[in-house]
Nucleic acid binder design. Structure first.
Lengths: 221, 221
DNA sequence: GCATGTGAATGGATTCACAGCT
DNA sequence: AGCTGTGAATCCATTCACATGC
């Protein structure tokens, strides 16, 4: 079948792997700040309760980066992951919905440094337009999305509106040319094939915990 | 090996399955509001781009609930899932951190109806203590956690503080008797075995999108 | 000696395909 | 006929175990 390879000449990298790379990256930044020069897969493994072979496999996805008998060079590996994840140049982001959640995301530490730049929030509420978030990100008119995206070179859209408005925002994002969207509204969006959509569902996470609690209560204590 | 069964007499239900049950539940609530009486696995399947066999397997985890040739009774299945997920009685929740994110979560639509009740936010900042969220959830002193949890019968804790304070909050939560914790801080927490911990990492999700964008740029267009 | 990189083995989750009920 | 429930088959992810190189 030979299928369509998503990566050029390397393996197809799964989303699970990518998520872990992201986690490793954070750890490497920390190790670098501690001036640790090298790190072994075993050391990373017990930091994250993972298997060291998995880490080696993850890191070996794109070429050989460690040295046998020694481990991985922290700075070099970090730089490499940054490039591999595509955040070696800043990605511009717009957030739809300047309510509590949108504001929280706009000011969320760790977004605006290192790879992502939130250029604006957009909202339909005239009372909010023209103001800005605590950290100074402006709230613009939702209707201006089509101008903002190309002008500011925005690539990623975040949906932080209520469930009933989410689909419409999704359509506007797609219409404005965004191809990567992160959704926080608790709905199943009808998605376009060419657009990457990730959803973060707060409610599902709470229900997972509830399920766990229930398990304690009535099953295995 | 026979292992430790998490469920009493049924199968062990994985987290992936539980997450989907959660999604089905939301859909069933919608269908009920539309007065649709029955639903087939095929209908649910294309709503979520899933395989119908998977849905049947998921739903068959706990006894037979459909009728062959017909499908599933919407209301009955919904009630069943609610019981199965353990939200047939309200679960009380406390949020640590009354910043943007904590406030956003406190007022997040869909938490406070149906199964979850956020009883309070806690914070160390004296300027915030005594106030309350837009929807009226009070901000109490972080130091009172040990009283609040038993008094209000809190079961779930949400960490909505900065990365550097997260581990300490985690310890306080565990110390106060919580056994299910949802973490929004971008750190790998050192976890206690007996406590269920779920982490939602905003940054990882953005990096996933960035990786996708990068793939378009330089690999397969 | 020590830690990587990787085929082979295992373990889960998803999908297929069909028997069985209504 | 239609749709569920489920063993069997398939696919994907993780782990093992070891050859390879520093």
């Amino acid at each position: 079948m030979a299928q369509n390879r998503t990566q050029t000449d390397h393996e197809v990298i799964s989303e699970l792997t990518t998520g872990r790379l992201s986690v490793y990256l954070r750890c490497l930044s920390y190790l670098e700040s501690i001036h640790q020069e090298t790190v072994s897969s075993a050391e990373l493994a017990d930091r994250f309760h993972l298997n060291s072979a998995q880490i080696r496999k993850d890191l070996a996805c794109f070429g050989e980066f460690g040295t046998r008998g020694v481990g991985y060079n922290v700075s070099r590996l970090k730089e490499h992951l940054i490039r591999e994840l595509g955040i070696d140049r800043p990605r511009n982001v717009v957030i739809a919905g300047a309510g509590n959640l949108g504001m929280a995301l706009a000011d969320y530490g760790g977004f605006n440094d290192n790879g992502f730049r939130i250029v604006a929030l957009v909202d339909v509420d005239p009372a909010k337009i023209g103001r800005s978030s605590r950290s100074g990100i402006p709230v613009l008119a939702y209707s201006d999305l089509k101008q903002i995206v190309p002008e500011q070179n925005v690539e990623i859209g975040i949906i932080a509106v209520t469930a009933d408005a989410a689909q419409e925002v999704y359509e506007s994002f797609v219409g404005a040319g965004l191809t990567a969207i992160l959704n926080f509204a608790p709905v199943q969006l009808r998605a376009h094939g060419q657009v990457k959509l990730k959803s973060v569902d707060l409610r599902i996470n709470l229900e997972l915990l509830s399920f766990y609690l229930k398990g304690i209560e009535d099953g295995t204590a």
